[in-house]
């Protein structure tokens, strides 16, 4: 009990210290909060009414974001196929799956926006760095999911086909694949949804897509146009969600 009391005291002290340190070293002028209300009001008023004249830009930007998500997901699927096999306990020995899993965890730890900035530096502006960034970033998660799908397969049917004289490819085709396919499909759809959501912001670092327009309209004070694009982004996210709910029901 004694030590627990001390532990609680120490934790409280640590949290209080962290908050005090942050307050003391950050320039927090509370007076600025009070004048924020009218400014936000002004900002929202300038966004209204949304300017529908940017429809062409919205369609162009949305289509590009969609293409980045589709091609990025395709790249991730192609990379995750072999990497998923290498990361699975049932298909690879420990000397292979352990380092592969560590590498995948490292990839997952890097935020997409950072990967995208690196890729813009490497291949220049446009949708290409966005596609590469999404493919790399998504592989960290998707390859792990694929490995788990492989490891989750029931052994019985594989043994039964081996017993019947089926070769290794026939076992893969008729015992392993039917068990894996729905899991793989569900995971890939889930990752596609995440890719689409995450790639909406890629335009901010010049990696293509609809966020480029939001950023350029805000910078040039064309708030009515920025509002239209923002509404389009919200509509897109809602549409993706509805689409995925329908798809997931199909694969459950």
């Amino acid at each position: 009990m004694e030590s627990r009391g001390w532990g609680g005291f120490a934790t409280g002290g640590l949290v209080a210290g962290a908050v005090l340190w942050s307050l003391a070293t950050t320039d927090v002028e509370l007076s600025r909060l009070f004048s924020a209300g009218p400014r936000i009001g002004d900002f929202l008023a300038r966004m209204f009414p949304p300017d529908p004249s940017v429809m062409t830009e919205i369609i162009k930007g949305s289509a590009e974001t969609l293409r980045i998500a589709i091609l990025g997901t395709l790249g991730a699927v192609l990379l995750s196929g072999p990497l998923g096999v290498f990361a699975s306990e049932t298909m690879a020995p420990p000397v292979v799956y352990r380092p592969v899993r560590t590498a995948l965890a490292l990839i997952r730890a890097i935020p997409l926006i950072l990967v995208a900035m690196l890729m813009v530096g490497a291949v220049g502006l446009g949708p290409l760095p966005g596609i590469i960034a999404v493919a790399i970033h998504a592989t960290g998660m998707l390859a792990k999911f694929y490995a788990e799908a492989i490891d989750g397969v029931a052994r019985g049917p594989i043994a039964a086909l081996e017993s019947a004289g089926a070769g290794p490819l026939a076992r893969l085709r008729y015992a392993i694949w039917p068990q894996m396919a729905p899991v793989i499909a569900r995971d890939t759809i889930f990752r596609f949804e995440l890719n689409l959501r995450e790639s909406l912001i890629l335009g901010i670092v010049g990696a293509g897509g609809i966020a480029f327009y939001i950023q350029s309209y805000v910078r040039s004070f064309q708030y009515e146009k920025a509002a239209s694009v923002t509404l389009a982004v919200i509509a897109m996210v809602l549409a993706i969600e509805a689409f995925n709910v329908a798809l997931r029901r199909r694969f459950s």
Partner: peptide, 18 residues
């Protein structure tokens, strides 16, 4: 030879989704 020898499993060992 494996085909000549049939095996029946206690837990059936069927592909559930097929």
């Amino acid at each position: 030879r494996r085909a000549d020898t049939g095996f029946i499993f206690q837990d059936f060992a069927l592909v559930e989704r097929a």
